[in-house]
Design a protein around this nucleic acid. Sequence first.
DNA 1: ATTGTTATTAACCAATGGTCAATAAAAGGA
DNA 2: TCCTTTTATTGACCATTGGTTAATAACAAT
Lengths: 190, 190
Amino acid sequence: MSPRKTTSQELTREIILQKARTTFVEKGFQQVSMRSIAKLLGCSHGAIYYHFKNKAELFYAIVEEDFSKLNYWLEETIQGSEDDSTKLYNVLIRFIEFGLNHQSQYEIMFLVRNTEVDSLSQEAANYSYQKFAQAVQSLAKKKLEIIDVWSAFIALHGFVSHYRGYVDNFEEAKLAAKSHVNFILKGLNG
Amino acid sequence: MSPRKTTSQELTREIILQKARTTFVEKGFQQVSMRSIAKLLGCSHGAIYYHFKNKAELFYAIVEEDFSKLNYWLEETIQGSEDDSTKLYNVLIRFIEFGLNHQSQYEIMFLVRNTEVDSLSQEAANYSYQKFAQAVQSLAKKKLEIIDVWSAFIALHGFVSHYRGYVDNFEEAKLAAKSHVNFILKGLNG
DNA sequence: ATTGTTATTAACCAATGGTCAATAAAAGGA
DNA sequence: TCCTTTTATTGACCATTGGTTAATAACAAT
């Protein structure tokens, strides 16, 4: 009989995002229901729909934050003080690192082909790829074919796309990642 | 008031598989419901559960057939009469070709991390990789590191995993596929 | 005919994503 | 202080989903 909580315990966008993030990261998009998030928040599922249009939009709000983190990270690597070949290596490794440490987000951005989330994520994914391509091209020893940069990206994507679910974080796949990156560098430099 | 149809139109495992296959391939695992298959078959969804334990098992029965096709195809390529480097190229291309022409099946085998289908698909996926690794190793010019074979596989997987959903079949991504395979060959031979 | 097996139905269950009228708390005047 | 408007929340409701199961009709064997 209390259709509204007192100010102190009111539901904010930020509080929802915070709780939803950890839950999505733990269990993945499909396995999390709006009702389960509501239960964790101690509110009704209807309340969440007041703050977010639907499940996809709630999720996307989370994803967006993380992707700007990735872009920033790539940018930072380019600006760094190491020599170019080290930087290039780092860009590739860090892409994998990001993918495996933000599996749920990576899934939505680069894997899910669900019409619900598609139009939103497509744009951001493209932007992130542009950042990546730009980084690789500016750091490579020789002038690269754009198609080879694309292949390098696809090969990285394959790594993340496979190891996601098998490992919990980047650390667990670090060795394999390093070796895979060296394989890709052979493709780029050869 | 007719809890059973006459013999001529009886529901068999084969008829279900046939109809379900085309539907799954068209729309993907998640987008197809047991009820929608039943509607196409002109029976109730309960009837399907008589023939298959659940949705995952029905789908897996379909996947299994297609994967034995892939294994056979790889085998056939190794046995062929071309020279080894052509054969190697073909093995890589054909893996992609299979992936893009059987997207729904590929998804379940190599992408889905859903506990419902997992234990079943894991085995078959492993077996297919063994076939692939064996083929690549026997066809390469020089003795390959197993980790490099693995990287090649992961890189191919990335290609399929990305283009699935964007293209309807292999033909539409053929050019990109050829270029990607050449990229991978540089990694293997360099 | 009787019996047992096989196939099919339809009613049922618990979840899900999503909508919406009702309503109470808060905020802002007068 | 009282009245009004805005804002946030609830919970009942809807359609759809995957899955279960008792009832029963069709068939085959005896």
